[in-house]
């Protein structure tokens, strides 16, 4: 971790009470800043909250939100809620995997996209849905999802 990053870390930590109940909010703030939870950050959190590193690791790996690996530039979340499931979420997932050449949970080698399965995005009437970064794209078909992807790649298809 670079000096500037350590400084950001310190600033984030100083906003929270050094007690165990701050652990999840701190992890969320760190991840928001860095996109994932770097090991150094987890060590700094353990020290600041005076809890074992194993506890920090245990909590980080328990919750689906936390990532221990860096993210791609764009995060694609494929909704696998019940409504999306019956409306073809698996198919959408497959198209994305084929187009990107990666499996769910992976990041493309050029670091552009990370593909993730999520349980439910809560916009069931637009099923099947994906969310790219903070934008939801609904009523997807095989064709439409390719267009959405092309929009983020910057190549007009």
């Amino acid at each position: 971790m670079q000096v500037s990053e350590s400084k950001i870390m310190e600033e984030i930590l100083s906003e929270y009470h050094p007690e165990k109940s701050s652990l999840i909010p701190v992890l969320q703030a760190i991840q928001k800043q860095f996109g994932y939870l770097p090991r150094e950050a987890m060590e700094a959190i353990a020290e600041y909250l005076e809890i074992p590193l194993s506890t920090v690791y245990g909590v980080s790996t328990f919750y689906a939100q936390f990532r221990l690996e860096p993210l791609g530039d764009h995060l694609i979340k494929v909704c696998h809620g019940t409504a999306c499931h019956v409306r073809g979420a698996d198919k959408i997932n497959e198209v994305l995997e084929n187009e990107l050449g990666i499996k769910s949970g992976e990041t493309t080698p050029d670091g552009t996209f990370t593909l993730e399965r999520v349980a439910c995005l809560g916009c069931c009437s637009l099923a099947p849905v994906i969310m790219v970064d903070d934008t939801a794209h609904g009523n997807l078909s095989r064709e439409k999802v390719k267009k959405v992807l092309a929009g983020y790649r910057g190549d007009p298809r």
Binding site: Y63, A64, Q65, A119
Partner: peptide, 18 residues
């Protein structure tokens, strides 16, 4: 932080406690 089991009340409270 994304855990379905936290809908259960005692699990939810453990989560608030960190």
């Amino acid at each position: 932080a994304g855990a379905f089991v936290c809908g259960e009340e005692t699990a939810l409270m453990h989560s608030i406690e960190g």
